[in-house]
Design a protein around this nucleic acid. Sequence first.
RNA 1: GCAGAAAUGGUGGAAUGGUAGACACGAGGGACUUAAAAUCCCUUGCCCUUAAAGGGGCGUGUGGGUUCGAGUCCCACUUUCUGUACCA
Length: 920
Amino acid sequence: MEYNHREIEKRWQQFWRDNNTFRVEADREKPKFYVLDMFPYPSGAGLHVGHPLGYIASDIYSRYKRQKGFNVLHPMGYDAYGLPAEQYAIQTGQHPEITTRQNIARYREQLDKIGFSFDWSREIRTCDPEYYKWTQWAFMQMFNSWYDLDASKARPISELVAHFAAEGSEGINPACSKPMKFTAEEWNSLSEKEQRRRLMNYRIAYQGETMVNWCPKLGTVLANDEVSEGLSVRGGYPVEQKMMNQWCLRVSAYAPRLLDDLEKLEWSDSLKETQRNWIGRSEGAEMLFPVVGKDFDLEIFTTRADTVFGVTFMVLAPESKYVPRLVSPEQREAVEAYLDEVKHKTERERQIEKKVSGVFTGAYARNPLTGKEIPIYVSDYVLAGYGTGAIMAVPAHDSRDYAFARHFDLPVIPLIEGADVSEESFDAKEGTMCNSCGPELDLNGLSVKDAIARTKQFITEKGIGHVKTNYRLRDAIFSRQRYWGEPFPVYYKDGEAYLMDESELPLQLPQVDSYLPTESGEPPLGRAKGWQTREGYPIELCTMPGFAGSSAYYLRYMDPRNSEALVGREADEYWRNVDLYVGGAEHATGHLIYSRFWNKFLFDLGLVCEPEPFKKLVNQGMIQGRSNFVYRIKDTNTFVSHGLRKEYDTTPIRVDVNIVNNDGLDTDAFRAWRPDYADAEFILEDGKYICGYAVEKMSKSMFNVVNPDDIVDRYGADTLRLYEMFLGPVEQSKPWDTNGIDGVNRFIRKLWNHFVRAVDAEQKEPTREELKAIHKLVKKVSGDIESFSFNTSIAAFMIALNEFSALKSTNREVMDLFTRVIAPFAPHIAEEFWQMLGHEGSVADAAWPVWNEDYLKEDSVKYPVSFNGKARYTIEVPAGASKEDVEKAALADAGAEKWLAGKTPRKIIVVPGKIVNIVV
RNA sequence: GCAGAAAUGGUGGAAUGGUAGACACGAGGGACUUAAAAUCCCUUGCCCUUAAAGGGGCGUGUGGGUUCGAGUCCCACUUUCUGUACCA
């Protein structure tokens, strides 16, 4: 019987569908296990061979857990809102929903071919109104909540309103955009409009005038994680800073908890570290510097309170609210010119130039410790969004301040003994203080650490400052001036935002005639006829960003068709949270922060029972492309093989990897590839044309895309699954190289032949060798799956098969165990074997075997004998021999005499089961 | 700059502190075949030595250290990848 992967795989995939093999329901009798993949954005290009890597790993784990007796939830869906579909719509006029639906169909087809154990009955799509109803609903909960900093949790906004009405802003500590103080009388005397306006300052989903990343080319704002090096992550267009009134989420309020709870998670250290840096906790102090001749103080934030004696000037961010208040009449013109200049620079220009720029305001502040007057500058190296938007400059110990001081010729006062500041600043936080003695405070002789503590204590006592912890994590900007996203369930009355009623959800995305902004610059939703108003009041025209739909999707899978709640209490209490999450590390500062925030918010409101969404997380590595090159001799149509190219003047040209095999070019296919190459000539080496190669991103333009469908068609899904795992550790990035796939395919075919031959053979009792080989395999594979090292399991399968072939093993008991352990890896062929062995139903329901240590015991143990750590010869002793016996045997061996060379051993180390080392 | 990860044959990669290079690819040789494909067998880190069996030396980016013993642990450095950055 020939191995026909096409027939076998098709038949079993149909079997799984027909029997709902992987449909799962909450079952209190069984322990649950939730395995989740990051759901894909269905792009027009389809899946390439890198995409399924994580899905295969998680599928193996799911199938394994299921065989271990767990009730496994393993769902899949689509992150369907996104920019590419919208941009395609702008170009073609085709509704993004149509494109998206087509792309999803294509993805599904590709996924199905690989034989995943997804429960497709739970599929979700973020652009489906039944789904985004709950995205909109969550937004409404955030709008109706505030964050209590004392209790460290979100609470209903009604509680805050009640407090304001009874006691004003005293005695309560809400997270806010800017601090406000008022009495109960003042609050109660405000109009409804005024009260609502003030409440915006406290809501978790709030509207605020904030500095945003504006991308003119995309015509929308972007979140911080959607911008990299001043360019948009999607498209790579320049991004500029702009003040705009936008919806925001008060993620910053959750910064301490997002940071602390990282401890509890089984995530990689590097990913946790990335999140820690992004959250960016820094402990320091806020301090007041009185402005000379004015009745207000400048408030600054510093982590180096010890350096106040070295402050020789101050700097404000260009956007700082202090600027207009203290600029002198003589300097007004210069300051305004500078502000104008800064405004027109994009973020990228600001970063690339890195030129020192700034302007004097004409005002002076007084150093509170020395009493000296110091000038106040404005410069764009100070950021408005961090700390207070103002700094005390210590040029001797901060490189940025140093550069500024040198440029404007300002004094530099070193404060640490032995620090040479003639060429550069001394930024290290170590050493002994000097030059730091004022009328009230003397820091000289203290270490930097002690000086910081002493200064903090002093300023607190004097009432000129206080200890403060700052976080770099900003609130998430939640508005997008785009069409293809969730509409906000918000309308405006008298300019103030009001929520629609929950019964009006989902607020459906309307049809528009074009996906571009309107003439008047409104977002595309402004074009929807008859949609923009609700009872005469205008509706919000922005849509939500991509991360809105992906922030709580894992909850929806638990209870995907519930029309009463995002997730029902019973379902939530059973499935709780994701036990294993598999996906790319590129989501570290985006999705993985937003999801954790979103989950914590729902947790605070008592809507979900776990404070963290993803218990264990594995980051699969990126699969890069492996491009092939041919070398054209200049001004000819002759191509020279890689090894001989140095002898000519050549231009490397990328060639489609699908017409290259083991770096050997199929020259006929090459001639047929492009009309230009139809009459190409080749200079061969050893009768072959060898291509060069390079590792690059896998993309169409590099001609290095390998399609999983082609692999499945040619070798079968089982071979693809095994090969993707065999490539190396799941976490590691590596280039895709189809070259090695023959080895894995050979294994599958040999395995098939072995089974077909063996299954009809006469039955005998399993031999000791057979039992040993199979139990060794079971033990090895069990351990490997638990530790996610699938590549070594594949090797173990190959070794085991070789052993069984050598033993001419035909025992069904042994084959039965083999089938069970290979089932998660190569499910189709395993199902076929399962059937051959006479079982009913699916091998996915077969129990995972337990190995028996008794079979793994050896009669005798081999010990390498080393002299001074260098292995010299091997002895064999009976199993269970004592250390003394092993020692004796080692010295009795003929080799001992030679290597001792007459000397007596100084020491003999026997490590049971491992090694004997004789020290001479 | 900062943070994290990594560095092992021609290649992908194995090695709870205990005989480095499992397994696979590629390459070389052989068998079968009219031939090719497929399949099977042998060799394959480097160097020296031997007629052969065999024997010996060197080897996990560099330099130190701990240890009877280090790819593995510690310190310093080099390089590569990833993330992040005027965050005061």
